[in-house]
Nucleic acid binder design. Structure first.
Lengths: 313, 313
DNA sequence: GCATGGGATGCTCATCTGAGCATTAGGGCA
DNA sequence: TGCCCTAATGCTCAGATGAGCATCCCATGC
């Protein structure tokens, strides 16, 4: 576009959007025909001179959502606009809560993981978001430290707000010995919960980054050294307690066998698996989850979404 | 607006602006009538949920311009949008240059002051912005220090770019003794220039802040102590070398009498007096100039414009 | 129980707007 | 110089939109 045309576009855009004149009036004012004014306006929008932005905590980026759906074959995607300040996590959680509440058919059984993100989602859910939903934990959640109860309260909160009840998985996330893991899985209660989890009509989960800040480290299941070793083996993060690499495969089969909860294949087979993820640090895990079919629905922030859309990282 | 309506507005706005659907389609999608969709859209725009911004170095704020014209009885106003970064001055200078170039009738004689702002304007003017314009200095401009020549080059640049010639005022801005001032004014050359200046068809000038950073201090006409004293007397800044207070009156009659150049009353009587001002620090002078009829046209930045529009500072 | 009034809703109609097409202007090339 | 090709311009027309009006809903007061 020539410099002169560009300046004219700016003037047209000003008169149209700031002064809300009609294209006809603008034409008269600037001595051009209304068609030309209209075309300049189109150009101004196309070239980014006119920027239209929807400023609202609940706003979404439908354009990127569509791209994500098409690119990764997702059923749905929810993208929260980039925002200055650090409200990112709560906004994404809000969006996930909104999505869950609007989900049709309403899930009879909802399988959830736990963690900070899931807890945020639980808090953002409105009372009565649904009725009679059974919420079941899909991975081990008995914390070993002061955070004890967070996992449970997440599930309970989600269930209570839907006048349903929560079924907790009474098992550690990761066991030290395989035998113990097999034994606990064989326990009638645990087995029952796992069966229920397998039959859930929808899953809602997040992912953790593979570094020493992980909740699994915090809870004492793993040491920072363990995580460093996993990273060395290619781990990008954990999903329902299982560490995966960029290809979505479990990084350490031995560790994975000692992890209690729904398997990744079962997650991949689910008809509705809602993956909630936010923040700069989680781009890699998010990529692994989304590209390897672990989720059918993605709820995230614009930064993560754009990172996913980049041809190669 | 209720919270629910607001959220709906957001959804409508997203579909309309991001996905460019028609209001009709949006209605079908959200289960509302197209009229309701249209009304929600209007609300979204009105409540600021939808923000439309024109991003361009040459963009203007026509809304504020209109308010300024009405409020202060200006012939015209040009307001540059607030911008991050520090391009404010050059953008305002650009706008002033644009305005000058578009001014009709083209001034036969253009009276100008000097200073950093005016110099910027001169640089931004395009070659051939007009033809045969005589540019005449309206206040004393023989610098006493290394900046010597800036004042002259500003005038010359403006004139040359219009294939015209510059008439310089060969006199200091302020003289130490009244007698010297009267003597120099009586000089045929100086008197001739001043007469020419009085007959200019348009004036273009800026203003300085009343503090030790003033060019008048820099040039050695005043000491920082002099300026401090002027401030004590109510000075907010200088216009064509003359210090004025918030009411547009000269602060120090004695000093004013020793200042060579066009008087403020002559400026007030001008049919076209273009005042260019930019930057946080100049709000007070700008207010004084605009409210006391020293200019007919204002060219400034959004910050200054808004400061002027505030009921009381 | 019933009338009243203010705000939201749905509708009509005139106007505004964009897509698509015919026409014209400009600029290289034989 | 005349021709052809491309891009810009002006136009037609159908679809989109906003203003204004009638109606409806619902809460309030008698």
């Amino acid at each position: 576009m020539s410099d002169e045309t560009e300046l004219l576009s700016v003037r047209v855009a000003e008169l149209y959007y700031d002064e809300n004149k009609t294209q006809d009036e603008i034409g008269a004012l600037l001595g051009i025909t209304r068609w030309k004014a209209g075309r300049l306006l189109t150009q101004a929008r196309a070239s980014g001179i006119v920027r239209i932005e929807i400023v609202h905590p609940r706003a979404r980026r439908l354009g990127i959502e569509r791209e994500l759906r098409e690119r990764f074959g997702l059923t749905d995607a929810v993208v929260i606009p980039a925002t200055e300040g650090s409200e990112l996590h709560s906004r994404v959680a809000q969006a996930a809560a909104d999505y869950l509440a609007a989900l049709r058919p309403v899930p009879r059984i909802l399988g959830i993981s736990w963690g900070r993100t899931l807890n945020d989602v639980a808090n953002q859910l409105a009372d009565g978001w649904a009725t009679g939903v059974t919420v079941v934990q899909i991975n081990g959640g008995v914390s070993l430290n002061r955070r004890a109860g967070t996992a449970a309260s997440t599930a309970v909160a989600i269930a209570q707000k839907a006048s349903g009840h929560a079924i907790l998985l009474p098992s550690p996330a990761i066991l030290e010995r395989l035998e113990t893991k097999l034994a606990i899985e064989a326990d009638r209660t645990v087995a029952g919960v796992l069966t229920l989890a397998e039959g859930a009509s929808a899953y809602l989960y997040s992912a953790g980054v593979a570094d020493e800040s992980s909740v699994l480290v915090d809870s004492g299941y793993l040491t920072p050294a363990d995580v460093a070793e996993l990273v060395r083996k290619g781990a990008v993060g954990d999903v329902v307690g299982r560490y995966i690499d960029a290809n979505g495969n479990t990084v350490d089969p031995g560790l994975d066998e000692r992890t209690v909860g729904l398997g990744l294949d079962q997650l991949r087979a689910a008809s509705t698996a809602i993956f909630v993820v936010a923040g700069e640090g989680k781009h890699d895990v998010a990529r692994a989850v989304v590209t390897t079919g672990l989720c059918t629905v993605l709820v995230t922030d614009e930064g993560t979404a754009r990172a996913l859309m980049e041809p190669e990282r």
